[in-house]
Design a protein around this nucleic acid. Structure first.
Length: 215
DNA sequence: TAGTGTCC
DNA sequence: TCGG
């Protein structure tokens, strides 16, 4: 193995961003090939698609889901659905590699009994972004959010409890995991426009996995 | 209510 | 380019 590869997969200390918000640098790197293969299998069963938001505008990020429930948006609103609106079928199950990663990352951030029932898969191509928003469509706000970054770099913004005010800018690289919950669960967050780049495993895109307990 | 988009 |  090359020295660079060894270095990149070493465990690194968690970085505390807020009282209950943590960055786990390179946390997923040691299992990235398995994750990437399993993600591609999910995408083959439930295609990535750009969803509409109320008002009819289209998100730049393409999305799909795995798990008992998936986050969906259309002209009528945001919600969790047990089926893929595009096919009427259940979402694929969360692959074991993804589930185990989410549970262990939550534990590393102090959330001991996280059992996600939903995993949103987001694909950012060059120029894609996610405006500042809150994750508030879930029933169980005691469960944290676990967000896994794969592929090219992006800058995550972690704000306060309204849309305005100071925001932390957190550079995210392949394998980084963010966990936020407790008093920080409803913080506004988003992703700045992704710049063109190439990643050796994932190619010219950023893949984000967001694990939630939706029900 | 509108909205994770867009304008100023 | 950024904040609102």
């Amino acid at each position: 193995m090359l020295t660079d590869d060894l270095f990149a997969s070493q465990p690194q200390p968690a970085i505390q961003l807020q009282a209950q918000a943590w960055l786990l640098p390179a946390f997923a790197c040691s299992v990235d090939q398995q994750l990437w293969a399993d993600i591609q299998t999910v995408i083959a069963q439930a295609a990535l698609r750009q969803m509409q938001i109320p008002g009819g505008k289209t998100m730049s990020v393409a999305m799909t889901n795995c798990g008992d429930y998936g986050w969906v948006s259309d002209r009528s609103g945001y919600r969790y659905s047990a089926t893929d609106p595009q096919t009427g079928s259940s979402w694929p199950a969360i692959p074991e590699s993804l589930f185990d990663l989410a549970v262990s990352a939550a534990k590393a951030a102090g959330f001991d009994s996280f059992l996600p029932d939903a995993c949103l898969i987001n694909r950012y191509l060059t120029g894609c972004k996610m405006s500042l928003h809150q994750d508030k469509d879930e029933q169980d706000m005691t469960a944290p959010i676990v967000s896994v970054s794969l592929g090219i770099d992006a800058v995550f913004q972690l704000g306060g409890f309204t849309r305005t005010g100071p925001k932390l800018k957190v550079p995210l690289a392949h394998g980084d995991v963010l966990v936020w919950g407790g008093e920080d669960r409803l913080r506004y967050h988003g992703v700045l426009t992704v710049k063109q780049a190439q990643h050796p495993l994932v190619g010219g895109q950023r893949i984000n996995l967001t694990f939630r307990k939706s029900n």
